[in-house]
Design a protein around this nucleic acid. Structure first.
Lengths: 218, 218
DNA sequence: CAAGTATTCAATAGTTTTATTGAATACAAT
DNA sequence: ATTGTATTCAATAAAACTATTGAATACTTG
C-alpha cells in the first residue's frame, strides 16, 4: 500500500465516523442513549422524530460503531457501544460549550432562563440544605452516582424513579439534578414528579459544576 | 427559550462543528496543521487539492473555530486555533484507530508493510533517554522541527537521511519519530536505516501525542 | 504605477444526505 | 392461524455538500 493510498483510506474512514456524528437528530439520540439504553419507541417519544426516521438514524449510528442493539421480545433496545465512545462524546461536548462562542451563549441564556423559572442555584442549595428538610435527588445512572456525587444526595436513577414514588413524601421539598443544563434527566424528573403532585424543582446546574466549585474551594 | 428550542440550537451547533470535520480533505489539512502553521501553498503542495479547493476547505475550518489565520506579506498562514482543539482531535484519532476495526486494520497493515513492528512507546522513550545512549531522530521536514519538537531530538529530515548516514554510529540505538500513527515518515526511516545495518526502531506515536502529554503535565 | 503572485470569491453541476411516505418483516398475544 | 405491535426497508424529492472553473482581490516588487 502506497502512502497516498493509506492516507486516503484513513481519512475516508475518519470522515465516515465524523459524518455519523454530523447530524443534530443523531446527536440528540446519542445524548439520550448516553443516559442508558432505550427502545426505538423510547427515542421516538422523547424526540420529534418519526419511527422510520429514528430507525434510519439508529442504523447509521450502528454501522459506524457508535451504538449497539439487543432484541428483547418485539422490542429493540439501543445503547452506546462502549465507554471509550462516551468519553470521546463528552470531550466533544466540553470543547463545544467552552470554545464555540455561539454555543456558549446559547447555554448561558438557557441557564439564565432556568434561573428565571424556579430552578435552584448551587448557592441556594447550600442554604436550603442547612435550613430545611430537602431531599437532594441524583437522577443520573447509578454508575455515575457511585463514581462521585454531590454530598448529601441520594441516588434515584431515572429508570427507577417511577417505581420508587411511594418512598417519597409529598410534603418534603425535592431538588433533582443530573449532569448540568445540557442534560435532560433532571427536567424529565421534574416533569414526572410534579405531575404526580410532588414539590420538586431542579438544580440549574449539575454535578460537574458542583465538583468544580469544590475543587476551587481548596 | 423553551426546552425544544434550546436543544435544537445546541444540537444544530454541535452538528455544525462535526460537519466541519466530516470530510477527508479537511481532516488531512487538520493533520497537517497539527504539526505547525502552513500557508495555503504549503497545503496545496502536500495534498492533491487545487488552490481554490484548499482555500474553500480552510474557510470552512475557520468559520467553525478550528483554524485561525494570519497574513504575512502576500501569504496567509493557517494554524490550529488552540491546544484544546488539538487535544480533541487527538482523542478522535485515538478512538478511531483503537475502536474502528476497519481503520485499525488499515493502520496495522501499513505498519506491517513498513516492518516497524517493534516500536517504542512514549513511556519507554522516557526511560531510555535517561540512560543517555539513545539518539532521538525527528524525521519530519525541518520547518516542523523548528516550530517545535520532542525535547532532546535532533532534526534529520527524510530527504537528508541518506546523505547523513556516515554521521551516525551503528552501535548507538536510534529512535525515529514523525507525526504519529498516520505519518509514514518514521516507518520509511526505519526501513532505510535498518537496511544499512543500524539499530533503529520507531516511536509508536509522534510529536502531537508527545505535545499533548506535555500539556497534560501542567 | 505596472506586473506578478498568493489567495479568495462566485457560479455551477455532480454527488451525498435527509425526511417522508407507504409498504414489508418479525415477533407476541390471543 | 389471526391480529396487533415494534421495527425496518425501499423509493423519492428536497436540501446540503463538494470539486471545478474562471474570474476578482490584495498585496509585493520593481
Amino acid at each position: 500500500m502506497q502512502g497516498r493510498e493509506f492516507k486516503d483510506a484513513m481519512y475516508d474512514g475518519l470522515a465516515k465516523l465524523m459524518k455519523a456524528l454530523a447530524n443534530p437528530a443523531r446527536l440528540e439520540i446519542i445524548e439520550m442513549l448516553a443516559q442508558g439504553e432505550k427502545s426505538v419507541e423510547g427515542i421516538v417519544q422523547a424526540t420529534s422524530l418519526t419511527f422510520a426516521n429514528a430507525s434510519q438514524h439508529l442504523q447509521v449510528l450502528k454501522n459506524n460503531n457508535i451504538v449497539k442493539s439487543r432484541k428483547e421480545k418485539q422490542y429493540v433496545f439501543y445503547s452506546i457501544i462502549n465507554d471509550e465512545f462516551l468519553s470521546l462524546y463528552q470531550h466533544v461536548i466540553k470543547y463545544a460549550v467552552q470554545e464555540i462562542a455561539e454555543l456558549e451563549k446559547t447555554l448561558n441564556r438557557q441557564r439564565e432562563d432556568n434561573k428565571a423559572s424556579n430552578s435552584v442555584s448551587l448557592d441556594e442549595l447550600e442554604t436550603m440544605i442547612h435550613n430545611k428538610n430537602v431531599l437532594l435527588m441524583d437522577v443520573r445512572p447509578s454508575a455515575e452516582f457511585e463514581f462521585d456525587h454531590i454530598s448529601g444526595a441520594i441516588s434515584v436513577p431515572m429508570k427507577e424513579l417511577l417505581c420508587c414514588l411511594k418512598d417519597f413524601s409529598k410534603e418534603q421539598e425535592i431538588i433533582a439534578y443530573c449532569r448540568g443544563p445540557f442534560c435532560v434527566l433532571a427536567d424529565e424528573a421534574v416533569r414526572v414528579l410534579s405531575e404526580k403532585g410532588f414539590k420538586v424543582r431542579r438544580l440549574d446546574e449539575g454535578y460537574p459544576e458542583w465538583k468544580i466549585r469544590q475543587l476551587e474551594k481548596n
